[in-house]
Amino acid sequence: MAPLSNRGIDDDLSQTLKEAQSGDQLAWEKLFREYYPKVRRVVRRKMGHSMRSVYDSTDFASDVMKSLAANLGRLDFPSSEHLVAFLAQVAEQKVVDEYRRRRTLKRDVTRERRIEAASTPVQLASDEPTASQLAQANEAEAILLSQRDEIERTIIDLRRQGHDNNDIADKTGWNIRKVQRFLKRLHDSLHSGGR
C-alpha cells in the first residue's frame, strides 16, 4: 500500500491528467510547469557536445510534451514516478533517433563544416564552361570548319548566330530539306565522336 503522502500526490496527478485530457488549459499548464524542467534535464544529459552545438534541449523537451498531449488518452500513469519515467524514456528516444538520423550517410554530421569568415572567399560552382571546355570547343570548331566548303561554313556560322533553317536556306540558296539533312548529319557526327 502506498504511503498517504504519495497517495495524495498520485490522486492529484490523476485528477490533473483527467482535466488535461478533457482540454482544461490550466491543467496542461500545471503539467507543463511540473514536468517540463525534468524532461529538459534528461534531454541535456543525453545530448552529446556535438548535438548541443546544433540543437537546443528545449526543442526536444517540447516535442516530448507534444507526444504526451497527443497520446494522453491512451496512457495511464498510476503514479508521478511512472509519468516521469515515461517522459524520460520518450526524451531519451527522441535524442537517440535524432542522433541516428544525423549519423546516416545522407546527413552525416562529420561532413558539415562551419562557414567562417576566412581570408579566402568561398568559390561557388558556375554554369559557365571551364577554360578547358572552351579550348576543346574552339579546337573542335576549327577542325569542323576546315573540313567544310564555303557554303557549309556559312550554314554553320548562320546556325551559330541563331538563324532558323528557313533563313539559312534563303541566304545560301539551298533547299530547306538539304539544310536540315546537313545540320542533322553534322549534329550526329559531333555527338558520335567523329568529325
Rank of each mutant, 00 (worst) to 15 (best):
G8P: 01
I9P: 02
D10W: 06
D11V: 13
D12P: 01
Q15R: 10
T16Y: 02
T16H: 10
L17A: 05
L17Q: 05
K18Q: 14
Q21Y: 10
G23L: 10
L26C: 03
W28L: 02
K30C: 07
K30G: 08
L31Q: 00
Y35C: 06
R41N: 15
R41W: 14
V43G: 06
K46R: 12
M47K: 06
G48V: 12
G48Y: 08
S50K: 05
R52I: 06
R52L: 07
S53G: 14
V54I: 14
S57V: 07
S57H: 12
T58G: 12
T58P: 03
S62T: 11
V64P: 02
V64F: 06
M65C: 05
S67V: 12
A69K: 13
A70F: 11
N71S: 12
L72V: 02
L72K: 04
G73L: 07
D76Q: 13
P78M: 00
S80H: 11
E81W: 05
E81N: 09
V84H: 03
A85I: 07
Q89P: 00
A91W: 02
K94A: 15
K94E: 04
D97Y: 12
D97R: 15
E98Y: 03
Y99W: 13
Y99D: 10
R100L: 03
R103Y: 12
R103S: 15
T104V: 07
T104R: 12
V109Y: 14
R111H: 12
E112R: 13
R113V: 13
R113T: 08
A118I: 08
P121Q: 12
V122D: 02
V122S: 09
S126C: 06
E128R: 14
E128I: 06
E128M: 15
E128N: 08
P129E: 09
T130R: 15
L134R: 14
N138G: 05
E141P: 03
I143V: 14
S146W: 03
D149K: 11
E150M: 07
I151R: 06
E152D: 10
T154Q: 15
T154P: 00
T154F: 08
I156F: 11
I156V: 15
D157P: 01
R159M: 00
G162I: 05
D167S: 01
D167K: 05
A169D: 10
D170G: 00
D170W: 02
Q180L: 07
R181C: 03
F182Y: 00
F182H: 02
L183H: 03
K184I: 04
R185L: 11
L186D: 08
D188M: 06
H191S: 10
H191G: 09
G193P: 07
G194E: 14
